[in-house]
Design a protein around this nucleic acid. Structure first.
Lengths: 205, 205
DNA sequence: CAGGTCCGGTAATGTACCGTACCATCTCTT
DNA sequence: AAGAGATGGTACGGTACATTACCGGACCTG
């Protein structure tokens, strides 16, 4: 009953539609995107779109939940014994991802529609900032077991590190056309890492 | 030529329209607010609204610029000699304001419409996060002249303090129905202040 | 008081758009 | 090979909405 030819094709088509719709929604936002806009890009008929997604709102929830889930993973990092390089690598990866075009676009859409789709945007929060913080806290815990220094209160440390990492930058990117260069990102990350090292680390004896 | 009776009345009416329109836009967002919705609340005719504001977009820019300007002031604070109470007072005021219903609503609208009104939302950034940071840096400078302790690099210290203050909270409020209680806010502020004191302060000799 | 300007209310105009219906064609299952 | 379902293309219904137009009455200025 599984691996039906029809079903396989349908699933493929669904993925394709979802991918293109994601692009369109990210480019124009929820309200400014019309179903016809999406259709123009995917090329099929209206009926097929409505078969896969019962309406515009369903399309929105599918886009946001799947994207926010896929986009929220810390890259596996080299686990050297030194803390600072680890922080730099993790921080840079996090910021680069957070400030990327797609993530910013999704954030704009999710924040705007939060009052209308509370359950959906809650998922964004959980897959996004919350999960990032938890994963980082876990990495800190791992580090504490094998590393040279000790990180106090990993959960709160992770929270603080990510916050200083974001600083002002994310707001600025969300609200203006500003996009920092990789060099500027690196500089911000280095500053945040140094703060972190001053505060949350005690040398292991 | 000034203080005309007509002009006075008109200015008054404009203010009234702007205030009510602000409420409606904040409650429903830009795209979901219809001109008729606003009109229903202000009670007049369409023509008068269109006389004061040439269209929906003009109404949007007026709302966002004036509100973001008015909402972004640090309260004057008691300048005692101790740093910690100062941080607590400033931080609490900042967070309470940032997480208030209206500010959150404006942020949602501004972020969503940023691609379409770049100049306007840029003003929001400058009146909001940027200005807050500058004002706080100035306060730190003042403190350094009269206080008991010394804050290193006031500009960057202000940035870091506000960032740790926000932490995760603002995202969570933007994306979910969560609203922290005053007690929780106080707790967050205290944590951020303690973190700050550990990092950015050197005792004056 | 005369005249211009603002105001309120309603109607009209034109457009954009979501969702459905119809029908011929293609694809996979049995 | 036949039937069932998916697809493409186009057209339709109904609605919501921004903006303009019209008109009778109110208010301020000269």
């Amino acid at each position: 009953m599984s691996e039906n030819g029809h079903d396989r094709r349908a699933a493929q088509r669904r993925e394709e539609i979802l991918a293109i719709a994601t692009e369109v929604f990210f480019a124009k936002g929820f309200s400014r995107t019309s179903i016809d806009d999406v259709l123009e890009r995917i090329g099929g008929s209206k009926r097929t779109l409505y078969r896969h997604f019962p309406g515009k709102e369903a399309l929105f929830t599918a886009i946001v939940t799947t994207f926010s889930d896929r986009a929220s993973n810390f890259a596996p990092t080299t686990r050297s014994g030194e803390l600072r390089p680890l922080l730099l690598e993790l921080g840079e990866h996090y910021l680069e991802n957070l400030l990327s075009k797609d993530v910013v676009a999704m954030f704009r859409m999710a924040v705007a529609e939060a009052p209308h789709f509370p359950e959906v945007t809650k998922v964004v929060y959980e897959n996004g900032p919350k999960r990032a913080c938890e994963l980082l806290a876990k990495k800190f815990l791992e580090y504490n077991e094998s590393g040279q220094e000790k990180i106090d209160d990993p959960a709160e440390a992770a929270q603080a590190f990510l916050a200083t990492l974001r600083g002002d930058l994310f707001f600025r990117v969300l609200l203006t056309a500003y996009k920092p260069t990789p060099t500027q990102v690196k500089k911000s990350v280095a500053a945040a890492a140094d703060y972190f090292l001053k505060t949350h680390v005690s040398s292991r004896m």
